[in-house]
């Protein structure tokens, strides 16, 4: 392909040549982000509730303390207190081979394990690491959101005869969710950007694509500027979606 120069220096032909690769990278990035947002939110809700678990009577009181509050606190502390990059490496090179291994995998072994690792290893570890990491952050958002709801709301609901879980589902979480949307949106944006770290273990997402293209042509402006704009547009899209959700769930808001 003949060099196409934009503004006298930008080699647009490189981007055109690798368009399909960027497109696939974009799809992987979006896929990983969406899966991790969904799973991270579910995990964050579970961990957030575990951190708030309490009961009035033993043995439930002790169970809440030692089997729910303590482990969840340690979990959050670990995943917030260590670098995501290290977590990705740890999970990909140490944890995953323990479970999926051709020789002696704890869950899957043999030929299935070999092909799984080869084809989807980086994807699996990347999604796992990012989910576990964002779950820790999101659990703190849930915890703060739930705690911010006036006790009177819970008392009114319980005094009507609604159980604890129904109170959570119908009264507390819908109100907490509204307040949690801005921090959840921030988290989703951070997650999208952090997904670029998975390129380190060889997942062919956007950042990996840019590195490949840069290596092939020894040109750096073109690929990295291109994916920068792609990430930027994606984060703008996420921010817009969060704003829409806020408007939708803002019914009955005092402000």
């Amino acid at each position: 392909m003949d060099p196409i120069l934009w503004f006298g220096w930008f080699r647009a032909d490189i981007i055109a040549e690798y368009a399909m690769m960027f497109w696939h990278g974009l799809q992987i990035t979006i896929l990983v982000t969406l899966i991790c947002i969904t799973q991270g939110t579910a995990l964050g809700l579970a961990i957030g509730l575990a951190r708030l678990a309490d009961a009035r009577h033993s043995p439930a009181r002790q169970i809440c303390r030692y089997l729910l509050r303590w482990p969840s606190t340690v979990y959050v502390s670990f995943f917030r207190g260590t670098p995501l990059f290290v977590q990705i490496l740890l999970i990909h090179f140490a944890v995953l081979p323990l479970f999926i291994n051709p020789a002696d995998g704890l869950i899957i072994s043999g030929e299935t394990a070999r092909s799984l690792k080869q084809n989807y290893g980086a994807l699996l570890s990347g999604i796992l690491a990012l989910t576990l990491n964002s779950g820790a952050y999101i659990s703190e958002i849930f915890r703060a959101g739930i705690q911010s709801i006036d006790r009177g709301q819970i008392e009114a609901s319980r005094s009507l005869g609604l159980s604890f879980w129904r109170t959570m589902y119908h009264v507390v979480l819908p109100q907490a969710f509204r307040r949690m949307l801005p921090p959840l949106g921030n988290n989703a944006i951070a997650l999208l950007k952090d997904s670029s770290l998975i390129s380190a273990i060889g997942l062919a997402e956007l950042a990996y694509t840019a590195r490949t293209v840069a290596g092939a042509y020894s040109r750096y402006w073109e690929p990295y500027l291109t994916i920068s704009f792609m990430y930027w547009i994606l984060t703008l899209g996420l921010a817009w979606a969060v704003k829409r959700l806020e408007a939708r769930y803002g019914r009955g808001d005092t402000r």
Partner: peptide
């Protein structure tokens, strides 16, 4: 509790519901 209605000083209506 479903047999015992309670009315609070601060009303405690659910603000996200009509």
């Amino acid at each position: 509790r479903s047999e015992i209605g309670m009315v609070f000083q601060r009303f405690n209506l659910f603000p996200h519901k009509t």
